[in-house]
Design a protein around this nucleic acid. Structure first.
Length: 447
RNA sequence: GUGGUUGUAGCUCAGUUGGUUAGAGCGCUAGAUUGUGGUUCUAGAGGUCGUGGGUUCGAGACCCUCCUACCACCCCA
């Protein structure tokens, strides 16, 4: 029997689950504080809901579910003969695992349009699947934490989402920089450089700026047919760090001043607020995802070499493909797996986040084991997660076990304790111990 | 999907141009210690060298297949 895991998947140990839940708990708490409500959607969707939404690349990375029953008799033999994988696949697979949470959310909004109320603020923390080639921090099964609001154009939501980012990363103790840009501003740059029709190509090239530098971006632009004159204009604009300077260059009745005004308004909302992290306008921020139309965001750890820890943006028409046009929205996503890796690498998990019970009772002999059983019962009735070592005997062994499973306290009892009706409470972290009545132990651990 | 690197004990890794019985540290188990884990000392257990094939008198080492992790693309969290 070959014992292994499918590529790109992981098991989690008890301590890892405890830490992940702590992390998700903080994220969720902030979401709720800002008035977002949780929804859930199925792990698989109709393939027709998913295909074509993520581009050609995305379709390739979709996990497809083989139809049940005698799927071959209903398969498209012609497509099979012609080796047309796409067509053949759709004849033997009608469902697929979700690739992200955004498209299922769009489907959800359309299907439940009579039950939800706009603006609708939802969050969703669930796993998604991609048949991508795994790398460090990249898995085939991973969690996404999305917060979106649909049905409003108010820029106060942009400001709110920035606050959410700020608050979550502050609570997790990860210093970050939150960058913001605007899709229409990028379009304006392309327009100004006379390459408006190729603005998507331009955006994708700019997106790599911090990675491959100006030389690399210029090279890529040349390959995509950008004249060097246009490139010069683009880079001249990209060097403008200030919104006002850009406005003076681009402005003069152009459409693009709108994006600059919008960015200005978002900063206006944030003005005077106490924030924990740096928020900066970054004209070179591009982000690949096609459906963004307004402000775009990205979060990076300040000294974490881990890529982006989250991103998002505004879209005008999320639900259009499902038949409900012109529903605007804005949302951001947290890269849970990467955030976990950063927390792990920097040792930022609090010591109270433990997998084991809070206290384990240990007894020296049969008689005190009976007494310990009554103690653990009292602890459990008080709602304290507690355990009793199954056999009395060597304390060394029992202490080691308690320490191994991530217990914080051990309650040691023997003849002496039983007679005095106390428990020798030992703190495994500090090593200190004291005799306490069981009621006092309960009081102490309840805090 | 393209190109590359990698895999030896539970973990991190040695292992000489291919040559007898494959090693170390950590961890694990037991004891030193019959009322105290995380420190110390002693002893012990643990490996079909990722998989399947090939070359060779002989393969952990060389060649090919597949699998895995990782890296660079693509794309992305």
């Amino acid at each position: 029997m070959d014992v292994s895991l499918p590529k790109g998947t992981r098991d989690f140990l008890p301590i890892e689950v405890a830490r992940r839940r702590w992390m998700f708990g903080i994220i969720e708490e902030v979401f709720r504080t800002y008035g977002y409500v949780p929804i859930e959607t199925p792990v698989f969707e109709n393939l027709s809901t998913l295909t074509g939404k993520y581009g050609e690349e995305g379709d390739r990375l979709l996990f497809k579910i083989l139809n049940n029953g005698d799927y071959l008799s209903k398969s498209d033999e012609e497509a099979f003969q012609k080796k047309d994988s796409n067509k053949f696949t759709s004849s033997i697979s009608k469902r697929g695992l979700r690739y992200d949470l955004t498209v299922p959310f769009a489907r959800y909004v359309v299907m439940h349009r009579n039950d939800i109320h706009l603006p609708f603020k939802r969050y969703q923390i669930q796993p998604v699947w991609r048949a991508d080639r795994p790398q460090k921090g990249r898995y085939q099964e991973f969690y996404q934490c999305d917060v979106d609001v649909v049905g409003s154009k108010s820029l106060s939501y942009e400001a709110e989402l920035i606050q959410i980012y700020d608050q979550v990363f502050a609570a997790l103790n990860i210093p970050v920089v939150i960058r913001i840009n605007h899709r229409q501003l990028l379009y304006g740059i392309a327009e100004h450089a006379g390459v408006a029709e190729k603005w998507i190509d331009m955006t994708m090239a700019i997106d790599k700026l911090d990675k491959i530098g100006e030389e690399g971006v210029r090279k890529e632009m040349s390959e995509r047919g950008f004249a060097s004159e246009a490139q010069d204009k683009i880079f001249y604009l990209l060097r403008q760090k200030d919104l006002l300077a850009l406005k003076n260059i681009l402005g003069k009745g152009s459409e693009d001043t709108k994006s600059i005004e919008e960015l200005g308004k978002v900063f206006q909302y944030l003005k005077g607020l106490v924030l924990n992290n740096k928020i900066e306008f970054d004209i070179t921020l591009a982000r690949g995802i096609g459906y963004y139309t307004g402000c775009i965001f990205e979060v990076n750890g300040i000294d974490a070499d881990m890529g982006s820890l989250g991103g998002g943006g505004r879209y005008d028409n999320l639900t259009g493909v499902f038949g409900w046009p012109d529903v605007p929205g804005v949302g951001v996503s947290f890269g849970a797996e990467r955030i976990y890796d950063v927390l792990e690498a920097k040792g930022l998990f609090p010591s109270h986040v433990q997998a084991g019970p809070k206290i384990m009772m240990a007894a020296f002999d049969e008689a005190s084991h009976q007494y310990a059983f009554r103690c653990v019962t009292a602890l459990r009735r008080a709602g304290i997660s507690s355990d009793l070592y199954p056999e009395p005997g060597k304390i060394k062994k029992q202490l080691k076990y308690a320490s191994d499973i991530g217990c914080t306290y051990v309650g040691i009892v023997g003849e002496t304790e039983m007679q005095k009706e106390v428990v020798m409470l030992k703190n495994l972290t500090s090593g200190e111990q004291e005799e306490l009545l069981i009621e006092d132990v309960i009081r102490l651990l309840k805090e």
